[in-house]
Simulated assay, not measured.
Amino acid sequence: MSNMVTEILAFILTTSGWVLISSTIPTDYWKVSSLDGTVITTATFWSNLWKTCVTDSTGVSNCKDFPSMLALDGYIQACRGLMITAVCLGFFGAVFALVGMKCTKIGGSDQSKARTACIAGVNFILSGLCSLSACSLYAHRITSEFFNPMFVAQKYELGVALFIGWAGSILCILGGVILCFSIADSSTTSHTGYAYRGATSASNVSSHPRGHAQPMSQRPPPEYSSSSRVQHFDKNAYV
């Protein structure tokens, strides 16, 4: 019962993390910057993996899509690939988890369900690592440009999408580890048993009917231990 509750908890954590990771891809604010006037903010610059935009004080946004994937910076291409890989791994992890959990009626035997659930946990861990790497790479590029005194172009700050991606990555990794450990504990418990040694074997059971003595030629020789070899005789035995 405790393993089933642990699997359900791990599935909730991993699914929530996968949803957060998936929501970061279309999110606008991966990096953001503002130009302040004398009274109010005059313009807000923001960008994500697909476009760069500017929003004025009236709320009107002007966006420009990235013209070509091959002409993009390397870190944006890497972040795109890692985030798409994370979403795909999380999807297959959710499917495998539904099949391999003990509370579901599909998946076959307990051994096959445990193997499937372990695969789901590994997929969620890899999904979290891919998303964590993408968000960290993007954040490293922002911070390196911001603190570089020789960089004279527009400087940005960390957007809300990065924090959502980090949170989803941690949930996926944590839930995947819990799922793998719960399967390991359940398999260890199921293989634990007790050895039974019977009092007599089938070969020692007499085949003769009850009430009939076994012939002397068929009787096994008596077994003597080291302590039973000392025979007890009376005092006239040596005379």
Rank of each mutant, 00 (worst) to 15 (best):
I183F: 01
Y138W: 11
P149V: 07
C135L: 05
E145G: 05
A167F: 11
S169I: 15
T143E: 12
L174H: 14
S109C: 01
G108W: 01
L126A: 05
R141E: 12
G107E: 02
V122L: 10
L174C: 15
A161C: 02
I142A: 04
V152H: 07
T104A: 08
I170V: 15
L126P: 00
S131G: 12
I170D: 08
I173C: 11
T104G: 08
F146A: 11
K113W: 00
L162N: 01
A134E: 10
M101A: 02
Q154M: 09
C135H: 10
L179M: 06
S127Y: 07
E145H: 12
R115T: 14
L129F: 14
F146T: 07
F163G: 14
I178W: 14
I173H: 08
S144L: 08
G165V: 12
S127N: 06
S182P: 01
C118A: 13
Q111N: 08
A153M: 14
D110E: 11
A167G: 10
C118E: 12
W166E: 14
V160A: 13
S133K: 13
T143W: 07
A114V: 08
C180L: 12
G100P: 05
S109K: 01
L171D: 11
I142K: 03
F163Y: 15
C172M: 15
M101E: 00
W166I: 15
I142N: 04
S127E: 05
G128Y: 03
A161E: 06
G168Y: 09
L174Y: 14
G108M: 01
